[in-house]
């Protein structure tokens, strides 16, 4: 059993969990993920490792309630354990070849770029960071980013924090300014967030010819290269996010394909959610 040692609410429906996982953290590196099952009937759900403390043997995950299983997870409190916890999975991120990096995080994708921002900061070459959310309430980790980022830019859909608009608006300004200056140019963008956002970033950076990495979050079961559920089409080839990724060259990803596959279990998920709401409503039937 891996126990929850800390829990805090970061935004509506978004919890940060610090989980005791000494075995997982030992060989973990930024960019990798874990799979957990809440209980004996639970499904296997993947989460990117958002932060880790090797000395304490803990990993930090951000969990957004998006379905039945994450809602179940959200009910757990400090001291509770999850039935299964496995990782680190996937390949770690390697941004070492790049000097001038912009990290773009949309919504829960913030959880994935935070360890990158931290690692780059610790390596002495902090990145520029762009965060996007629907509104101020949904912004996460702004204080942490303020510390770790070279500069922090924020966009919200309603303008309640930062600039009103999308992350792509801000990114475009940066790329445009960079093009004018034309020295020490931005040589890499890493974008993580909802697939449509990542696609929009990919389209934009393509115009500017800037190498772009995205972290994909397709449906997964085993996470070890066994089921093929996480397959994506990248550069015309079938790849598996859990072993070949989760990061890929954004300009090579077949976005239409990836977005279509993501909606696979929408209907079943809906039915499950109803079940949970029934249960939470007093627990009587």
């Amino acid at each position: 059993m891996n126990r929850i040692v800390k829990k805090r609410v970061l935004a509506p429906n978004v919890n940060e969990y610090v989980i005791d996982a000494p075995l997982v953290v030992k060989n973990a590196r930024p960019g990798q993920f874990v799979i957990l099952r809440v209980d004996e009937e639970g499904e296997r759900i993947p989460f990117t490792i958002c932060d880790m403390d090797k000395a304490a043997g803990t990993v930090t995950l951000l969990v957004q309630e998006v379905g039945y299983s994450t809602a179940k997870l959200a009910k757990l409190v400090v001291g509770d354990g999850v039935a299964d916890f496995v990782g680190p999975l996937g390949k770690p991120t390697d941004l070492s070849a790049h000097k001038n990096i912009v990290l773009v995080g949309g919504g829960i994708g913030t959880a994935v770029i935070y360890p990158q921002a931290k690692a780059l900061f610790e390596a002495g070459r902090p990145a520029a960071v762009i965060l996007g959310a629907r509104n101020r309430e949904l912004l996460m980790y702004t204080d942490e980013f303020k510390r770790a980022a070279k500069s922090l830019y924020i966009a919200t859909d309603d303008g309640s924090a930062g600039q009103k608009g999308f992350v792509t608006d801000l990114l475009k300004e940066l790329l445009e300014a960079d093009r004018q200056r034309a020295k020490n140019g931005i040589d890499c963008v890493m974008a993580v967030g909802p697939m449509p956002m990542m696609r929009a970033v990919a389209n934009l950076t393509k115009e500017y010819g800037v190498h772009t990495v995205v972290s994909m979050n397709p449906i997964m079961v085993d996470g070890t290269g066994m089921c093929g559920g996480c397959r994506l089409s990248v550069g015309g080839k079938t790849v598996y996010a859990c072993v070949d990724g989760p990061e890929f060259d954004a300009h090579e990803v077949d976005w239409a394909d990836a977005i279509a596959r993501l909606s696979l279990y929408k209907e079943t998920e809906q039915a499950h959610r109803c079940r949970l709401t029934d249960e939470t409503a007093g627990g009587q039937k």
Binding site: C227, G228, A260
Partner: peptide, 13 residues
């Protein structure tokens, strides 16, 4: 990549 296309491994798992 259509919905409804699945490997036997995934289906059976």
């Amino acid at each position: 990549s259509y919905k409804g296309v699945i490997s036997a491994n995934e289906y059976l798992t």
